[in-house]
Amino acid sequence: TTVVVGNKKYTFDNPEAAEKFAKKVAKKLGATVHKTNGTFKVK
């Protein structure tokens, strides 16, 4: 599962961990999490 934050990509074996990370980053940046085909995008 990939999490994309700006131009950085983070890969997780565990989708739950990926989602948690994405939400944490989004909260910090005041952004939102978008899920597309198993990829979480923070923007």
Rank of each mutant, 00 (worst) to 15 (best):
T1N: 08
T1Q: 06
T1A: 14
T1W: 14
T1I: 10
T1G: 10
T1V: 10
T1D: 05
T2L: 14
T2Q: 10
T2R: 08
V3W: 01
V4F: 13
V4M: 12
V4Q: 11
V5T: 03
V5Q: 02
V5N: 02
V5I: 12
V5W: 05
V5R: 02
N7F: 10
N7R: 12
K8T: 08
K8S: 08
K8V: 08
K8E: 06
K8W: 10
K8C: 08
K8M: 11
K9W: 11
K9I: 14
K9E: 10
Y10K: 02
Y10E: 00
Y10L: 04
Y10N: 01
Y10P: 00
Y10T: 02
Y10S: 01
T11C: 08
T11F: 14
T11D: 08
T11A: 08
T11H: 13
T11Y: 14
T11S: 11
T11P: 06
T11N: 11
F12Y: 04
F12K: 01
F12M: 03
F12Q: 00
F12S: 00
D13T: 13
D13V: 11
D13F: 09
D13Y: 11
N14E: 08
N14D: 13
N14I: 07
N14Q: 08
N14A: 07
N14T: 11
P15V: 12
P15S: 09
E16H: 13
E16Y: 13
E16S: 11
E16T: 13
A17F: 08
A17I: 13
A17T: 13
A18W: 02
A18I: 00
A18G: 06
A18T: 01
A18V: 00
E19W: 14
E19T: 04
E19P: 01
E19N: 05
E19R: 07
E19I: 08
E19V: 06
E19F: 13
K20G: 08
K20E: 12
K20M: 12
K20W: 12
K20I: 11
K20Q: 12
F21A: 02
F21K: 01
A22V: 04
A22Y: 02
A22M: 02
A22D: 00
A22C: 04
A22H: 01
A22N: 00
K23R: 10
K23L: 14
K23T: 13
K23Y: 15
K24P: 00
K24E: 13
K24A: 14
K24Q: 12
K24Y: 14
K24M: 14
K24R: 13
V25K: 04
V25R: 03
V25I: 12
V25P: 00
V25M: 09
A26T: 01
A26S: 05
A26P: 01
A26D: 01
A26N: 01
A26K: 01
A26G: 04
A26R: 01
K27A: 13
K27Q: 11
K27F: 09
K27E: 13
K27N: 09
K27Y: 09
K28P: 03
K28F: 08
K28L: 10
L29E: 03
L29W: 08
L29S: 05
G30E: 04
G30P: 01
G30W: 03
A31I: 04
A31K: 03
A31E: 04
A31N: 03
A31H: 06
A31V: 08
T32G: 05
T32E: 08
T32M: 07
V33W: 05
V33S: 02
V33G: 01
V33D: 01
V33F: 05
H34Q: 13
H34G: 05
K35N: 09
K35G: 05
K35T: 07
K35I: 12
K35Q: 10
T36Q: 14
T36D: 15
T36H: 13
N37G: 11
N37A: 06
N37K: 07
N37H: 06
N37E: 11
N37R: 05
N37M: 06
G38A: 04
G38M: 04
G38C: 05
G38I: 03
G38W: 04
G38R: 04
G38S: 06
T39K: 06
T39S: 14
T39R: 06
T39F: 12
T39G: 15
T39V: 15
F40Y: 11
F40V: 06
F40L: 14
F40T: 04
K41T: 15
K41I: 15
K41R: 12
K41Q: 15
K41S: 13
K41F: 15
K41W: 15
V42D: 03
V42T: 02
V42N: 02
K43E: 15
K43D: 15
K43C: 12
